[in-house]
């Protein structure tokens, strides 16, 4: 974790009183991992505006955060996750690169980062549902435990485990096999 946790409770208390500098400091500490989370979750739909919207939403909702209910980090992740889902819904009518259905799957190469990174992995991530993708990114990608991921995604812990059980083999196959060979039960084959 890149976070120095020591000042977080105080920073949160200050931010809750309207101290936007304190809020910015918290955001700066969590931003990189939230950026990774939201980017991997949305793929080509990702723009920085998603994070802007999420942080603004968090700032406005600061008074609703209660430490007894969970960590501030989890609370912030949850807001970012919801903003990502909203973004997905908003753009549903636009051409998609990532989707769960065959009819919505155009070429994976429209996502610029896919070329720079690993086409197969990006593509396989895109074949997962948003929940499955979020579980993998949080637990395997960012090192959250199942309980924390469940809190962020508002799912039972067992559901997180089952989403991971389903998603992991698909991603492993994508890492090992050529893109054209990748297919899975209930998932679309790349055209």
């Amino acid at each position: 974790m890149e976070v120095d946790p020591a000042p977080i409770p105080e920073m949160v208390a200050r931010a809750q009183c309207g101290d936007s500098d304190a809020f910015e400091r918290i955001v700066r500490e969590f931003d990189r991992s939230l950026r990774a989370f939201s980017h991997r979750l949305l793929g080509p739909r990702w723009t920085e505006d998603v994070l802007q919207e999420a942080y603004l939403r968090a700032f406005r909702a600061l008074s609703q955060y209660k430490a007894e209910r969970g960590t501030f980090r989890s609370w912030l992740y949850r807001i970012v996750y919801r903003c990502c889902l909203d973004e997905q819904r908003r753009r549903r009518r636009q051409p998609l690169v990532w989707a769960s259905g065959l009819e919505e799957l155009p070429s994976p190469h429209t996502f610029e980062s896919a070329v720079a990174a690993r086409d197969g992995l990006w593509d396989a991530l895109g074949r997962l549902s948003a929940e499955e993708r979020a579980c993998v990114i949080l637990v395997d990608g960012l090192g959250f435990d199942y309980e924390s991921a469940a809190t962020i995604l508002d799912l039972p812990r067992g559901t997180v485990a089952s989403r991971l059980n389903r998603a992991r083999p698909l991603l492993h196959r994508a890492l090992r096999e050529p893109l054209e060979e990748t297919k899975g039960e209930g998932h679309a084959r790349i055209p």
């Binding site: 950026r35 920085e48 980062s113 993998v136 990608g141």
Partner: peptide, 26 residues
């Protein structure tokens, strides 16, 4: 294995005016 693979994916950089815009809104 997935952790390493996901870790290798790029993270978009923060734009120069990101925090300026955020500050203006908060």
């Amino acid at each position: 294995e997935l952790a390493e693979a996901l870790d290798a994916l790029p993270v978009p950089p923060t734009s120069d005016d990101f925090y300026t815009r955020m500050r203006a809104r908060t």
